[in-house]
Design a protein around this nucleic acid. Structure first.
Length: 218
DNA sequence: GCCCAGGGGGCTC
DNA sequence: GAGCCCCATGGG
């Protein structure tokens, strides 16, 4: 077995679940839209909204920045908090048009952490959303942390509850090779595990990491 | 009917 | 700076 616990866990998860094929989107812009729409909602709800936007040929910065609010709300209603998310989408698109001529490529063409700070400055884009955009749309190596990551690694006894986002991210990034495809697959596998067996209570049925879990009641 | 999803912002103390 | 509440759909 790997002597690096972070790599060892990755290998166990990959062996159990295989490649997750994230991010399921036809373009980088679609990935960004999905990243905003998936905030606190399951992916199935997002798929409907993306499908609606595609059908109306609205999946572009220009189209989204100009769309009528009521129409936008109706199309993305399935993603919950649709008024807020509609505004966040428009806000991002208008920023992209104003400063980068609507080109994600130009926006992304800078240092990872410079890009991170810039995106965090936009309203409605928090750490997890920004890191998802950087990893899955810009395809730059940054580790995406979420509630599952924290919960699972707490149960493995590797971290404690009180760790903050940046510290947890740094822990992964300083113990793993800086590899976009590894980070891509790792986060997706964590989400898979979280949804599959590790929701709110420990000691849940079959788990590929059960031999490592510190909280399973025997 | 209940719970919780691939969060983030704003307010209070 | 932690602890709340708000937002307000859909599937199990």
């Amino acid at each position: 077995m790997e002597n690096n616990i972070f790599l060892a866990i990755f290998e166990k998860l990959f062996e159990a679940y295989g490649p997750q094929h994230w991010w399921p989107a036809g373009s980088d812009f679609e990935t960004v839209v999905g990243a905003i729409l998936t905030q606190s909602v399951s992916w199935s709800n997002v798929e409907k909204a993306i499908k609606n936007l595609k059908r109306e040929d609205l999946l572009s910065p220009r189209a989204l920045s100009e769309i009528d609010d009521e129409k936008l709300h109706r199309l993305i209603r399935s993603t919950r908090f649709y008024k807020q998310k509609g505004e966040r989408l428009k806000n991002f698109c208008r920023y992209l048009l104003k400063y980068y001529d609507g080109s994600l490529y130009r926006l992304f063409d800078k240092d990872v952490y410079e890009l991170r700070e810039e995106l965090l400055g936009l309203k409605g884009l928090g750490e997890e959303t920004v890191d998802s955009i950087i990893l899955y749309a810009a395809k730059k190596p940054i580790f995406v942390v979420d509630a599952y990551t924290k919960r699972i690694f707490c149960r493995l006894g590797i971290i404690t509850e009180d760790i903050d986002y940046k510290s947890l991210q740094k822990l992964f990034m300083s113990n793993l090779p800086l590899d976009t495809s590894l980070f891509n697959e790792y986060h997706a596998l964590i989400v898979k595990l979280g949804k599959e067996v590790c929701r709110t209570k420990p000691g849940c049925g079959f788990c590929p990491l059960s031999d490592l879990c510190k909280e399973v009641k025997k």
